[in-house]
């Protein structure tokens, strides 16, 4: 393993952790609203949130690049704020990752919230708990398996992203060169031994994460 490898691993872990934290913060209220509302607008938002599941990552990356670029509205806004342009920076990559992994947070949470049903909320209200209190003392604990699934899937999915990184982040060591991009470089340079370290590492990581998730969810069902 080279320094480049460790830099990429550290960067990937940082990106995935920050993405997961941001997604849980944004995705939880969004999933709650989607689970509790049945209107035309909630359907629209629901479809929009799910789109990264079916779109090729390059399509998403392409439009984000245009939006955040110097001619795009987001790009002009960030320039006006004095933040500069976001493409090919870590912040830009983080924003793209959040959008790209959003369905992996929202879907499990939405299902978990739906499964709770209205009854526990009604019971809590008759026991003098305000809606806000109920959300933290009843809804979140009951949705714990969904929260764990959402966090693990968002983290793992961010670790595995490639197309969006390539479009929006490029290949800057320590800034945007994550494991998957570095692996691509290694293969292009025909450094197969180096590629194996990263590829096998990713393989083991994914297996361990998914196995852990299955065991955790099984334990709670017993």
């Amino acid at each position: 393993m080279t320094t480049d490898d460790w830099v990429a691993i550290w960067l990937t872990a940082k990106l995935a952790t920050l993405t997961t934290v941001l997604l849980l913060g944004l995705g939880t209220p969004l999933a709650w609203w989607l689970a509790r509302t049945d209107s035309f607008w909630s359907r629209c938002v629901g479809a929009l949130v799910t789109m990264p599941l079916v779109l090729p990552p390059t399509v998403l990356g392409f439009y984000l690049l245009l939006l955040m670029g110097s001619q795009g509205p987001v790009g002009q806004f960030t320039t006006w704020l004095g933040l500069g342009l976001l493409p090919f920076t870590f912040t830009g990559l983080l924003i793209a990752s959040v959008i790209y992994s959003l369905p992996f947070t929202v879907q499990p949470l939405q299902q978990a919230f739906r499964a709770i049903g209205a009854r526990p909320l009604e019971v809590a209200a008759t026991l003098r708990a305000s809606p806000y209190d109920t959300f933290f003392s009843v809804v979140l604990p009951l949705a714990r398996p969904g929260l764990i699934t959402a966090a693990v899937m968002s983290f793992a999915h961010t670790v595995g992203e490639f197309g969006v990184v390539l479009m929006i982040g490029g290949n800057i060591p320590g800034q945007t060169r994550v494991i998957s991009v570095l692996l691509y470089d290694r293969v292009e340079a025909l450094e197969y031994t180096q590629a194996h370290y990263l590829a096998a590492g990713m393989l083991v990581f994914s297996f361990v994460v998914l196995l852990g998730l299955h065991l955790l969810n099984r334990e709670r069902r017993v």
């Binding site: 019971v123 209200a125 008759t126 003098r128 708990a129 305000s130």
Partner: peptide, 10 residues
């Protein structure tokens, strides 16, 4: 009045 302010047991 919201349920949690009514003080009814159910």
């Amino acid at each position: 009045l919201s349920t949690h302010l009514r003080g009814v047991g159910l």
